[in-house]
Design a binder for these strands. Structure first.
Lengths: 215, 215, 215, 215
DNA sequence: GATGAATGAGGCTTCATTCAT
DNA sequence: GATGAATGAAGCCTCATTCAT
């Protein structure tokens, strides 16, 4: 009757399920997670999930896709019209900032995506390909501009950088690493992943930037 | 009952089970793998596995530990008494060579280890800690020797480098990436992961090596 | 809301649902058939079915009843005011002709009716009782008239004849039997069920007709 | 330890499951029957059933096959080396005797077999083909011997006779018919199916036997 | 009346683990 | 120690039915 009960009815039930799934998958891992848990977290009946997703697998894939789309679009926005060197800085910082702001998403992308690539070899994961292409494009642009050394193929560089970021995200998400202070023996405390961005950049950049050292 | 040279009967049943498990886990992934499949691959009865391992989880952990021990000892042997810079080269090359020589092991370490860190938060994985410590030690030694820039904490560098190597291993194991040539449209072919070692080294090293900016 | 000529909107929604159900039940069988499929076939919403039928079971029963009523009335029309011997001929021929003309109906009556008698022991199926009574009546009349041997109770004869017809219908509907020609090795082709009527009649009749053993 | 605890351990667990399934399917019908019920009836765990049968469907098919084999072999034994006319008598009487002795089996064969032929069109049911072939062979032999009229193809006669027997079995199994006495209004009482054999024979035989009526 | 999204009970099946031999 | 048949808990998914619109 009321036209705006929408907010609590089903403004986007599909989105609610996706978010719930992301949290549950992050909490328990995909395999240990039960569809019923996702349903409860989303506040819907078990069967409702199957109105929006074909299977539990499909649900996982959809979580990936929605999240990677967001990540990609935020990265695109952040790197905007900058010069390659600035783009790289922005890319790395933004990515790790997103990890920091959405730990559940990070956990799923970091841990479950890897699993799934294995099981679902048929699943191409176009969003992740986009991610790598964007990063590779930045590198290639920098190489073309003469800002970056071009001894290494840009897409290899992209993958290597992604490896760093992914590992940083994993370590942070699992809360094991204790980068920075922390007296020895202290329980591992989450390090500041946003600050870690600059370390990663330092490692990479100093290598990529051509040093006009001159002889 | 039979006593005659037990040593011949089960030269090492435990080892056979571990190898079988590694192959099966690599082939199907830990969750999809069935204990019965491992038993069949090992040529033992299902129940026999439980004489050597407490549970399927324990089996996975044991696979990790045995393999990481081997990896660590081979890395230790390879890096031997070299200077830090040479140690780093040897470390990276040896690691990727091992990935190349034991793809099943690589698949398990690359994909399943990550999962397991999540599920078995209680499982400290000391071997992996050793791995990181070894790599960190090389970096720290290089920093102390003045060979490497010390702006980044050595253990952070270690993790970043591991991230690169891990991603390289993953891409190679899944056979998706097509680093190197390959006519466009060509089906992705496994790139030469051993050669990729030098790319990773180039990226990292050039950044770590202090540049004597002038003569 | 719309009132304009309701008769046009739903000329007979109930009938449409029944026809759709008959086709769907014939196609998939009652248990495998989904109410949603029936709804789609009928061009109505799932819920609409429950405005006309109490349950899926009720829908099946209604299909039976509507169809058996038709069958019975057509049989009654066909047997009309004939002499018993002619009535029997007409009954058998008409029944098998109906099977031929409405295979979906035949499939449901032949296969599902049998199931349902089991599950719905409470469901008396009065139409089928009528069917048997009509056939039994013809036999009894023939016996009374001295045309048929009366060694066997008429209702037993009726059931035996029905058994023949039912089996003929089943074999035809499932398309398995290959009565008539067909080179050996030939894929079973539907036999001519209408012609089969005369075989059934021959078998029965020659037995029922009292033989005047001599002139 | 004891060698003969066999009787209660697992003399033939597969057979026990088949018998249990037959009873449960007869009692509830295949679709309404739960695998768990079969397991309980058989005195095994749910999972045990899947050690012997691939699926619930496979269980049903196996019930058919085991039972039809028995039926066929008993029919073969009973019809032995008789003359065709005697074989037919023996066939019909034996079949209905079996129905009488094993009502659960009869219920499954009569009701579920029909369903299943529909769902499992791929399932050829060779035993039932044998059954029909045996009956057809008897008829054909009688026709060759000049005992039976050969106006109707023997396999058609076989099917017609089977139809009668099947219907008789069904009526008896469902306990609806009230052949024989029973005051009107009396609750339907199972008729004597063994005696009914002679009615069926009378109907058929008198038709099949060539009457040397002379001109 | 009509709709169709939502419900949630319930069943088939899998598979890690046990234990009698 | 070794076996492998048996166990039974547990989860994904289906689908008849409901009810707010």
């Amino acid at each position: 009757m009321t036209v705006h009960s929408a907010a609590e009815k089903a403004p986007d039930k599909r989105a609610r399920i996706l978010s719930a799934a992301e949290r549950i998958f992050a909490r328990h891992g995909f395999f240990a997670a039960k569809v019923a848990d996702v349903a409860k977290e989303a506040g819907v009946a078990d069967g409702t999930i199957y109105l929006y997703f074909k299977s539990k697998d499909d649900l996982l894939i959809s979580v990936f896709e929605r999240r990677m789309e967001q990540v990609n679009s935020q990265l695109r926005a952040a790197t905007g019209k900058l010069a390659p060197k600035q783009q790289l800085v922005a890319f790395v910082r933004t990515y790790l900032q997103l990890v920091h702001d959405e730990p559940a998403a990070a956990e799923v992308l970091t841990i479950e995506l890897r699993q799934s690539s294995k099981f679902m070899k048929e699943y191409a994961n176009p969003q992740f390909a986009d991610f790598l292409r964007m990063l590779g494009g930045i590198i290639a642009a920098g190489q073309d501009a003469g800002d970056f050394d071009d001894a290494i193929p840009s897409h290899v560089v992209a993958r290597l950088i992604f490896g760093m970021l992914d590992e940083l995200a994993l370590a942070w998400v699992l809360g094991r690493a204790n980068f920075g202070a922390g007296a020895p023996g202290t329980r591992p405390k989450k390090f500041d992943i946003v600050r870690a961005a600059d370390w990663a950049l330092a490692l990479v950049t100093t290598g990529l930037v051509r040093k006009e050292t001159s002889p």
